[in-house]
């Protein structure tokens, strides 16, 4: 579904990604772990077309999407739940969701998709007329996911969705992510600070260090790998 090859990304002279290659097969949940500043968000933004890579290719469903803008990638089915949620704080919940369907692929199905989102997150239905900025962190994260679903993505890239959420909310969130993957068949690329949980969820996982993929394998195997345990699980 998604395949990234030899991706190099720079901010000015500083290299953020060096020769990154990564695959997300259709219907799978792939985890990407790495320390602060490793380049996880940069990779997601590059795939979404929000940063321009200097070298390498990004292919999605047999189309070259390298350097395409985020409207184009979103319309091909690459959805994104960004770091820091990035909802529209002064718009209502309903308007946030509607705007998420402003893609040729999703616009006509807007009403039906919104009902699905409300079924998934009843809390959003209750708060539909409330402005997003007045909601709790957990509710805003639901909204960010809901807005992404409004675009009818085939792949969702989630960047630290559980950051700043209470433990109970986090486990609910992880259940939702699993449901999207297993229930709705959406492919997922998951970046989670909650490394143990994301490795348990993931079929395949990658470890990113200083802009390079240094390890990859089955989520289960990485979970029991000594290096991973030491560096990311504090064991």
């Amino acid at each position: 579904m998604l395949s990234v090859r030899d991706l190099d990304l720079y901010y000015g002279d500083a290299q953020a990604l060096a020769g990154v290659s990564l695959d997300v097969p259709a219907g799978e949940l792939v985890a990407l772990v790495g320390a602060n500043g490793a380049g996880k968000s940069s990779l997601i933004r590059a795939i979404a077309g929000m940063e321009l890579p200097r070298a390498g290719t990004i292919r999605f469903r047999d189309q070259d999407v390298t350097g395409k803008d985020s409207h184009t990638t979103a319309n091909l089915g690459i959805g994104q739940v960004a770091e820091g949620r990035q909802v529209f704080p002064s718009l209502t919940v309903e308007d946030n969701l509607e705007v998420g369907a402003l893609l040729p692929r999703a616009r006509r199905k807007m009403k039906a998709t919104m009902q699905e989102v409300f079924a998934l997150f009843p809390r959003l239905a209750e708060r539909r007329r409330q402005t997003a900025g007045t909601m709790s962190g957990g509710e805003q994260q639901m909204l960010a996911i809901g807005r992404c679903l409004m675009g009818l993505p085939d792949l969702i890239m989630l960047d630290e969705p559980s950051l700043g959420l209470a433990p109970l909310v986090v486990s609910e969130l992880l259940r939702t992510i699993r449901l999207l993957n297993e229930g709705k068949g959406i492919s997922i690329l998951l970046v989670e600070q909650n490394v143990a949980a994301s490795l348990k969820l993931a079929k395949h996982a990658y470890v990113l260090e200083n802009g390079r993929i240094v390890m990859q394998g089955r989520g289960e195997d990485l979970l029991h790998d000594d290096r991973v345990r030491q560096a990311y699980l504090g064991l």
């Binding site: 929000m50 979103a74 909802v87 704080p89």
Partner: peptide
């Protein structure tokens, strides 16, 4: 209005 509210969010939402 969404663009004015959060330009990064506008690009995230495609």
């Amino acid at each position: 209005r969404a663009c004015a509210d959060n330009p990064i969010g506008a690009r995230v939402a495609g």
